[in-house]
């Protein structure tokens, strides 16, 4: 490239990059109007300069969009994390409250798994007779399976309507989910103290009546 050409290009570049003093700009513009060769080279360099600017803007815009996407994704994950945290806190709070409740209410019904060898019962104490619908209430029947003296299952099954009666009759009624329990008036227990326990002990079905902490045989057989 000749020195003249190089100078010309540098002159154009200074113009397209706006690195000229006002008088020099004016001189350049006058020369531009008069010189077709200069004008052609100027047009090309101006277009390249414009193209460069566009490409820079594009690169910056794209980077901006990518950054925005990363932020959107981060926000989405943060929201999911927050929801999970709230869910876990809810579970934790629920369990905590239940523990507190159990601690403050030691009398609250708790499922105790009775051991076969500690069950107390008195078969002579016959007090389950008669039927009445006068003041029935439901008692859940706990079912326990014991095979070869090993506890193999414990679950609440079914429910029975229990009626406390003061007039004796002959039979224990265990039909239509109703059982009538006879007590002399002076020994009438609180209904909260009564529960029914169905045990299957080595294949034999036994229905126990629990009054307080004492168990009474209610019915035996399959």
């Amino acid at each position: 490239m000749s020195q003249e050409n190089q100078n010309k290009e540098e002159w154009i570049d200074a113009y397209v990059w706006d690195d000229m003093a006002p008088e020099e700009r004016k001189a350049f513009e006058e020369q531009l109007a008069a010189d077709a060769g200069l004008r052609e080279e100027y047009e090309l360099r101006r277009a390249i300069r414009e193209g460069y600017r566009m490409e820079r803007l594009r690169m910056e815009a794209r980077e901006g969009i990518n950054v925005a996407r990363r932020q959107v994704r981060a926000r989405e994950w943060a929201n999911r994390g927050l929801l999970l945290l709230i869910f876990l806190l809810g579970i934790g709070l629920g369990l905590g409250l239940k523990t507190l409740y159990d601690w403050w209410n030691p009398e609250a019904p708790q499922k105790e798994i009775p051991q076969a060898d500690v069950i107390e019962f008195n078969e002579d104490e016959e007090m389950l007779i008669g039927q009445s619908n006068d003041f029935g209430f439901k008692v859940a029947v706990d079912r326990i399976e014991i095979q070869e003296n090993k506890l193999s299952g414990f679950s609440s099954v079914d429910s029975l309507v229990v009626a406390l009666v003061t007039s004796p009759s002959e039979d224990i009624v265990y039909a239509d989910n109703t059982v009538a329990l006879y007590f002399p008036e002076s020994q009438m227990p609180d209904k909260d103290d009564i529960r029914l326990l169905e045990l299957i002990l080595n294949g034999e079905r036994v229905l126990y009546l629990g009054i307080g902490k004492k168990l009474h045989v209610l019915k035996k057989g399959n």
Binding site: L44, A47, I48, E50, G51, Y52, M54, E55, R58
Partner: peptide, 10 residues
């Protein structure tokens, strides 16, 4: 629309 294709600039 420019006379310089953007691919070349890029």
């Amino acid at each position: 629309e420019g006379i310089i294709p953007p691919e070349i600039i890029k």
